[in-house]
Design a protein around this nucleic acid. Structure first.
Lengths: 209, 209, 209, 209
DNA sequence: TACTAAGCGAGACGGTACGTCGCGTCTTCTT
DNA sequence: AAGAAGACGCGACGTACCGTCTCGCTTAGTA
C-alpha cells in the first residue's frame, strides 16, 4: 500500500483502444430504470426495450454493460440512498422510534417508492441481497450504536442480544411496508408500540429471568 | 308444478344452460400450476402454455375460467394448506417454538415450497393477500390460543399486547424464509433465540417499567 | 323393377324413432349462410359459429346435417336460382345478348351477389361443381335452343359447333364477373361486342354480315 | 464533402438506420410459400406458422415485411414466371394454338401448379390482380403480335377486334384450368377446336375457310 | 298415459393458428 | 471500438374457430 499504487494502476490498466464508454449513456440507462420503477412499473414487467427507449439508447449499449435485466436492476437500485434520520440522542426509546419510523409506510422520496419492491425482488434476484444490505447497513449500524449507548449508560441491560432485538423491531415494520398491510397486526404498526412492548425485555431486570 | 317451484328455483339459482364446466379440467389446471411451482418455476415465469400442456387442457379452457395469470395463481395457491404442528401444551415456551419453527427454512411439503413465493407475490398481485390471510389465520389463532392459555395460568402477564408479540416473533422468521437470509441477524434465526429474547417482556414483571 | 317399388320404399324406410329433425332449423341455417355470403363474407371466412349464431341454432344441429363447412356451402348454394331472362324470340342476335347480359356485372338479386363466389370456390370444393352445373344447365339449354332455332331458320350455319360457340361467348363474360375485371379486355365486355365479333363465324359462309 | 453530396444523398434515398432486413430471410420466406403451394396446400390453408417453420424464420420476421397473409401471397406469387412458348411463325393458326395450349391443363413446372390457384384467389385478394396481369401481359402481347402479323400479311381481316378475339380464345381455356372442367363443353377444350371455330370470323370475309 | 329415443339450444372441450410483444443477439452505419 | 437503430430467431401472450362432447329440455311415435 504505497502512494505510487494509484499511478501504477493507471499505467497498468492502460486505456482500452477505441471509443470509451459513454458515462452519459450509463447514467441515462440507470435513470430510466429508476424512473420507470418510480412510475409504478412492477419491476419484473420492466422491459429492456422500454428502458432503452426512455434512455434514448440502443439495447446493445445496455447489454454491453449488464448481462441481463436482473444485473441492471441490481446496479440501478444500488444507486438509491435515503438519508439517515437525525437522532436527538437524549433517550434510547426516542432514538429507536426515530430510526424505525421511516421503515414503515413510505415517505415521499423516489427511493421510498422503490425500496419495498427491492425486498420483494430479492427472492427472484438473489443479487439484490447485497444491494439491500449495502443500503441497510448504515441504518443497522446506527441502531446498533443507539443500543450500545443505552447499555453503556446503564439504561439497557448488559447481556442484550443486539441482533435479535433489532430483528424483532425492524421485521414487523418491514413486512408491513412490503405488502402494505401487516399480516399480524389488526392495524398499522406504530414504532412506539413495538418499542414499548419489548421494553421490559431490554432494560435491566429487577428479577432474574 | 307448485308455487314453491319458482322460489326454489330462485334459491338454487337455476343451472346455467350448455355443457357444464368440467371439474376434472379445473382440478388438472390447478394441480399443474402447483406442480410447476413446486418444481421451482419462479411463479412469474409460469407460462399459461406450460400449464395447459401439463394439464392436457386447451388454453381456452384456462382463459374461460380465469381472466389472466394472476387470477389463476390466486386460486391455485388458495388450495394450499399446511397441517398445523401439534402442540404439547405443557409449556408456553415450547409451544411457541413449535409454532414458529415451520415458518423458517421450509419443511418438505409442496406447500412449504410454494408459500414463501406467495408472500413475495402479494405486492404484485394484491389478490393474494386474502389467500395468504386465509392460510395463515388458523396458525395465528393457534398462537393466540397458546398465549391466552399462558395468561390464564399466570405464566404470562395479564396486559400482554398479543398482536404485537406475535408480530415480533413471526416477522423475523418470515423475513428469513422469504429471502433465504435474515437481513438483521448474522446467522439463522432460531425460534428459541427469539422467544428467549422477548421472554422478560411477556412474563409478569417483578419490577414495573 | 316394378311399379310397387315406390310404395315399398315408402314402407321400408319407416319413420326413424325419436324426434324428427326440425325443418325450421334447416331453413334457418341455410338462410343464415346465404345472408352472410350476401353481406360479403368471403365464403371461406364464413365461420360455422357465425352461422349457428345468426340462425339461433346449436352448432351440433349443423354438424348433425352436414359433415363440414364445404358440404353446408354446397347445399346452401344449391338453393339459389336466378330467373331466366325472357326472350323476344325475334332475332338470334338479340336473344343471345339477352342471355349473356346477366352473366356479366351482376344484377341485384341475392343470387347474383353470391354466384360469382361459387365459381371461385369450385377449385376449393369440387362438390360445388355439380351445384354450379345444376344452376347453369337451364341457361345453357336456353342458349342451345336459341342457336338451334337459328339453324333451323337458316339464320345460322348448319354445321355449327354449339358447345364451342357457347363457351366462347360465356367464358369471357364469366371471367369478368369472377374477378371484377376482364383480364383480356381493356374495358367491360359488352355482350353485343362478343356476339358481333363471332357473327361471321356462325352465319352461313357466303352471306356477309 | 461537396455541395453535390446532399443532392446525391437525396437521390439515392439515404439508407435507413439500423440493421438492414435480411435478403436471405426474405428469399427463404417466399420460397417456403411457393414450396408449400406447390405441395398442394390450398393457398388459404397456408399457415404463417408453417411458412415460418419451413423457412426457419421467426413469425415476426414475416410480419415485419408483410401485414398479413394475403400480402405475402401476392408478393410470393409475383415472383413466378413461366417461359413463353416458342413460336414457329409460319402460320397464324399454329402460333395461336401454341400460345393457347399451356393455358389449359397445366404443364409440369412449379408455376403451372400454382398459377390457376392465383386466378381463383383474385376475388379474395384483389391485390393479386396486378400480379396476374404482370405475369400474363407478355403472353397477351405475344398473341397480339401474332394476330397483327396475320393482318399485315393479309391472312386475317383488317378490322379485327384484337382484344375480343383474344378473350374468346383464352377465357374458355382458362375457365377449364381453373375448375378442372369446362362448364360449357362436354370434354376438354382443345385449342385447335377454338381456333377453327372462330376462324371464319377472323379471316377476310370473302375467302372460304 | 307413460316411455323411449332422437333432436334441440347452449356452451365447454382439446386443439391450431392468429397477430403482437419482449427477449438477448446480430449487423448495419456513424461518431 | 462504442454509439443508435433496428432486424434476427424464439417463445408466450390472449383471441377466434375448429369439430366433438355433454348438459337439461322438447317432441314425436310406441306401448
Amino acid at each position: 500500500m504505497t502512494i505510487v499504487t494509484g499511478a501504477a494502476a493507471e499505467d497498468q490498466e492502460r486505456r482500452a483502444p477505441g471509443r470509451p464508454r459513454s458515462a452519459r449513456a450509463e447514467r441515462a440507462i440507470v435513470d430510466a430504470v429508476l424512473d420507470l420503477l418510480a412510475e409504478g412499473v412492477p419491476a419484473d414487467a420492466l422491459s429492456i426495450e422500454a428502458v432503452a427507449g426512455r434512455a434514448a439508447v440502443g439495447k446493445a449499449t445496455i447489454y454491453r454493460r449488464w448481462p441481463n435485466k436482473e444485473a441492471l436492476l441490481v446496479d440501478a437500485l444500488a444507486t438509491l440512498k435515503g438519508p439517515l434520520p437525525e437522532l436527538a440522542g437524549e433517550s434510547v426509546r426516542d432514538d429507536l422510534v426515530a430510526l424505525l419510523r421511516p421503515v414503515g409506510r413510505s415517505s415521499l422520496s423516489r427511493a421510498s417508492h422503490i425500496l419495498p419492491c427491492l425486498i420483494t425482488e430479492i427472492k427472484r434476484s438473489p443479487g439484490l441481497l447485497h444491494v439491500y444490505q449495502k443500503i441497510m447497513e448504515p441504518r443497522r449500524e446506527a441502531m446498533r450504536e443507539v443500543l450500545r449507548r443505552g447499555i453503556d449508560s446503564g439504561e439497557l441491560r448488559e447481556d442484550l442480544d443486539l441482533e435479535v432485538v433489532m430483528a424483532m423491531l425492524v421485521a414487523p415494520m418491514l413486512a408491513q411496508s412490503m405488502i402494505n398491510w401487516n399480516p399480524w397486526l389488526d392495524r398499522d404498526v406504530l414504532p412506539e408500540r413495538l418499542v414499548d412492548a419489548i421494553w421490559p425485555a431490554i432494560v435491566p431486570a429487577a428479577s432474574p429471568r
